[in-house]
Amino acid sequence: MNAARTRQGQKAIKGAIGIGLFFLAWQIGSSLSGVGSYFFPQPGDVFRAFVELWHKGILEAYLLDSLGRYFAGVGLGLLVGLIAALCLGLNKFIARMFTPLVSFFYAIVESAWLPIFVIWFGYGITTILTLLVYVVAFPILYNTLAGIRAFPPTYINAAKSLGGSRLQIITNVILPGLLPNIITGFRVGAGFAFRGLIIAEAIAATSGIGFLIFDGAANQQTDRTIVGMIVMGVLWLVIELFYLKPFEKATIHRWGLVVSAEGRET
């Protein structure tokens, strides 16, 4: 117990040293290079930009915009993905038939859709939301179909022998059995959606953290770009640690299952 705590403490200290060294290198590098804060802002510049953006209320407004878009898009995407998975998935025959089509659309990455969405829906929220829905729904669909193709027939046989009706087998066996696949797909999609949001905001929005990152650079306010990058990184860590991981722990880990997924992040 005590040894474990010491080890944890050491780990934290070393980790802090690592981050400290990074900032030190950044500071020394940016001041020695002498290329000016436009090309290579110093940590202090970035901090000042952060304070300024915060006081003007810009950061808060952008953050709320991005979060609103993200959660709306991911929520809708989850819904669409689930409905599509239910339609295509409850029959092995149909699941097999549609797998190549789904693989093909899954292979058309989200950025490749962005131009056509701009043509169809213009620059704005519709394009952003459509992109996020697409990017969340397909990994869910893809992983669910993969789960159906590999579903252990003994589970279904066992339930049939216990007298389960078709509906009872769907609700008690198939849906919970596919939940790990759905969650894995959702996690992959949620990660893609976050990256997709940044690029969509860069191209099709006039607010949000993604906009801040690209707009800062366009207006020669590189310090704002770096503020945006750091806020984005923290935001993703928060989403990942507090929303996605606990969800996975409550199901997949608890049931002792391992899911293999395509395009799974790290």
Partner: peptide
């Protein structure tokens, strides 16, 4: 007819 399977077939999520 109840069946006991070689690989148990216990549902992992229950």
């Amino acid at each position: 007819r109840g069946v006991v399977f070689q690989d148990y077939a216990l549902l992992p999520w229950k």
